[in-house]
Design a protein around this nucleic acid. Structure first.
Lengths: 194, 194
DNA sequence: CCTACCGATCGGTAGG
DNA sequence: CCTACCGATCGGTAGG
């Protein structure tokens, strides 16, 4: 019992330390020995919990990816109007970042180090997410709720603005999730008005 | 003569290869041997042109940083109204990215690997650039040309949207610099209207 | 511009 | 969970 409990704790510890270190200094710059030291174990012991460094990174990335998809779906389903759907999706997106400040940065900046089967899966997953945003934009434009623009360009602008909110959370102004999400929504949705 | 000429060519070759490789796979993942192979020389020969890997990275980053500052200053100086200043600055920013597709990505994503004196210099330089944008926003808000919002948040949203335009240039839609810059400007400046 | 080489560190395995 | 260790590769130097 005590052993199993400790083992679960260690695995979580490895992941949390990895999220922090990968974000701070980059996946490629962090060795297994340094990660192990942060956890308080020796490097080979990590392999009792993760088969490889790649498996560790992909667990971090896909966990965040799942959260983005689920938060989006849950936020959008109860809204009728496309403007409200978009606003809710944006807020949900910022919410996922806010509750995963370190891991979401790894998701955004370190995914490129994923290895061959995981890399393709990740790209597909992320593209599907972008398309969910574009879909709201396209439908809203067709219905006349949004101004007709290049929806791919707009989706990129929206996601880019949302994805850098990490820096705003980290800055000394101490903006809340709501202030950030509302501020960006206001700016972009007003810009989209027909 | 021939030797000197060839030497200059080699240095440029090293930088162009570094820009391409650092962007593709990340600074930390590219060794001097692989870089040398791309140039067609042996690894130690790189040190005839660059003192260290860090010097190479910082040359790439500061070159782009200078271009951003100069393009901004040149774009803004001839405009009177803050809306026009902002639009011109945004267009200039996209223009620098468009003419430095590889190097600008290194600037955005690999600067964190700069070492100690260069890292601080880089951060200062980049903060000054962000403040130039905030300054236009703040003055425009005070004058009533822009809606009163958190200018730091808006500057972040603008720069984030502009900075990911690399992916739009790289995508198969083949958007032009003008289409990208105008699309993002339209979206964001309309959103800023008082 | 090269060959030859330095000490350090890499991800990961064997074996217990 | 550890110690001991693998081959490979790292940034960089010596010396020509």
């Amino acid at each position: 019992m005590a052993t199993a409990k400790q083992s679960i704790g260690t695995k979580q510890n490895i992941r949390l330390s990895a999220e922090k270190l990968f974000r701070q200094r980059g996946y490629a710059a962090i060795g297994m020995r340094e990660l192990a030291k942060a956890v308080g174990i020796e490097a080979p012991s990590i392999y009792n919990h993760y088969k490889s460094k790649d498996e560790l990174l992909s667990e971090i990335c896909f966990n965040i990816g799942n959260q983005f998809h689920q938060a989006f779906d849950a936020a959008v389903v109860n809204e009728e109007k496309f403007q409200k759907k978009l606003r809710a999706a944006m807020k949900a997106h910022v919410g996922v970042i806010a509750s995963n400040l370190e891991a979401s940065e790894v998701f955004f900046n370190e995914w490129m180090f994923l290895e061959v089967p995981n890399l393709a899966k990740f790209k597909k997953y992320r593209l599907e997410y972008e398309i969910k945003f574009r879909d709201i934009l396209d439908k809203g434009m067709r219905k006349g709720d949004f101004k007709k623009m290049n929806s791919k360009l707009v989706a990129f602008a929206i996601l880019s603005a949302l994805n850098t909110t990490y820096d705003l959370f980290a800055s000394k102004d101490k903006l809340t999730t709501n202030e950030i999400a509302e501020g960006i929504s206001e700016l972009l949705i007003k810009g989209l008005k027909a």
